[in-house]
Structures are given as C-alpha cells and as structure tokens.
Design a protein around this nucleic acid. Structure first.
Lengths: 132, 132
DNA sequence: AACAAATTGGGGTATATACCCGCGTCATGG
DNA sequence: CCATGACGCGGGTATATACCCCAATTTGTT
C-alpha cells in the first residue's frame, strides 16, 4: 500500500532480482552486470567502448568503467585498431572460460525467477524494454 | 531478441524510469531515491537508520549513506533518543518544503509512465514487489 | 552485578551508474 | 596541407547499492 511509485517498484524489483542472480553467479566471482557484459562481448567478438555502450544502452563513461572492472579481473583485454582514439575490447581465454562456467549458474537464476513469478508477470517484464 | 534475462530487463527498466523521474525532480534538485526517502520520513515522522532500512528494504549501511546525502543537503537532521546507539532522523523545515515542491513533479513523472505503459504492465509491475 | 549476546551505526571496499569536462585523434573543408 | 570541427575516451564528481568488520551500547542471562 506504500509505494505505488512505479519507479520505486521497478528499482526494488531490479535490486531483488540482481541479488538472486548475483548469489548464483558468486560461485564464479561474477555479478549479473559483469556476466551480461561478458556475454555481449562474447557474442559480437570485438567492440569499442562506445559500441558496447550503445549495445547495452548505458552511458559511455559507465561502460568504460564497467570494462575496466573486467580488465582488472583479466577477463577482457583491449586491442588496438586503426583508429588511435578507439580500442577494441575482446574476451581473454580466462574470460571465455569464466563465461562458460557462469552460463549454467545464470540459467539456474533464470529458472528461479521463472518459478517465482507468474507467466503474466514474465510477459509484462519482457515487454518493458520495448515500451520504455 | 537479445536479452531474455529477466534481471537485465528489470535493471534496464529501472534505469530508464529512474532517468525519467530524475529529470522531472531535477527542478528541485532531488533524485527519485532521495524523494522516496524524504517521503518515507515525512510519513512516519522519526525513524532510526535501521528502521528506515527495514522500511525501504535496503541494506543498513546503504541507508546510512543515503541519509548522509540528505543531511549534507540539510533536508534531514538527527535527534538523539534514549538509546545511545541510535539517533532518530527527521525532516528539517527545508526538507518539508523541498518535499512539498517535489510532489507535483513526482506526479508528473508518474503520469508520464502511466501514459507510456499499458495497464497490464502497470498491474504486473505493481504485483512484483509482493512476488519477489 | 557481571558477563555474554544482540543491536546500531560508521567506515572500508567494491561495483554500477550518470553527468560534465578536457585531451588527443581523426576527418573534412578550404 | 592545415585549421576546424566531430568523435572517442579517460578522469573528476556524485549518487546508489551491498558486503564485511568493528566499536559502542543496550539487553538479556545467570
């Protein structure tokens, strides 16, 4: 009865679900955000910071800092391209291994959510991204 | 087609809506999170950090830091109570004024969301908090 | 009353996020 | 071929968030 604020409801839901995914992924030392970024880079191969930011719909500086975290963990590395301003980000071998190890853990979290929410909610959540 | 990850969908939705609310509330220099905290304190009167954390379903240390932000902005102040460990947080006069000024801005953001999402999604979002 | 247990809050560390600014680099128009 | 403008990214600052640990305090138990 307290918060009919849609933003607060979504923020709370995001916090709660993030905690669930993070708990699963902690086994390989990843957060959900890191897993998602690894997945993105793994799918596309090489991308610049700006391209990653656009792809993930994040601020460019945010993406830069998120990539730095993965670099510190030696999960991604930067390779130069022709353009001296940009550098391409790609997975390291460790990054690929870590991503592979994380996949079943992510799936377990995904299943946990599916078991918790009812199908209508799943559908509504899925439609959110296109609506906003 | 990319991210069927429920967590990512919710996090993205939370980011997007937060940006909308923050844009409206920027007129009085508040963020959505700050507005929500002011509202909570305003409703209940006086609460300790721990009580606020429970009420908002946040980590205690997170709440402590969020309260510090409001203190820096002179929107809340702490008063001692019998218990030497705790101190009660309450709104300052400025805090009350700021909250009153923010209310219509929050409502505008709320209306913007209602105009953007369809009723089914609104219903599903509202039900999320009890499900998770 | 004395000691153990629980509570409270602060601080350290880490991540995620966004905005602004400036520096270096590229590309394009004279 | 150079100047200007566009682009890419790092850094500074601020907020939001959570985990851990610790000190002070209160509470509960014997």
């Amino acid at each position: 009865m307290d918060s009919q604020c849609y933003c607060d409801l979504l923020r709370t839901a995001a916090r709660k679900t993030t905690a669930i995914y993070d708990r699963h992924l902690a086994e390989v030392g990843l957060t959900l955000a890191q897993y998602k970024l690894l997945k993105k880079i793994n799918c596309v191969g090489k991308l610049s910071i700006s391209e990653l930011a656009v792809a993930c719909d994040l601020d460019r500086s945010t993406m830069g800092r998120n990539v730095q975290v993965l670099e510190r963990h030696a999960l991604v590395e930067e390779t130069s391209c022709g353009d001296g301003r940009r550098c391409m980000v790609k997975l390291t071998e460790l990054g690929r291994q870590r991503f592979a190890a994380a996949l079943p853990l992510w799936q377990a979290a995904q299943s946990e959510i599916e078991a918790t929410l009812n199908p209508d909610q799943i559908t509504a959540i899925t439609a959110l991204s296109s609506a906003l």
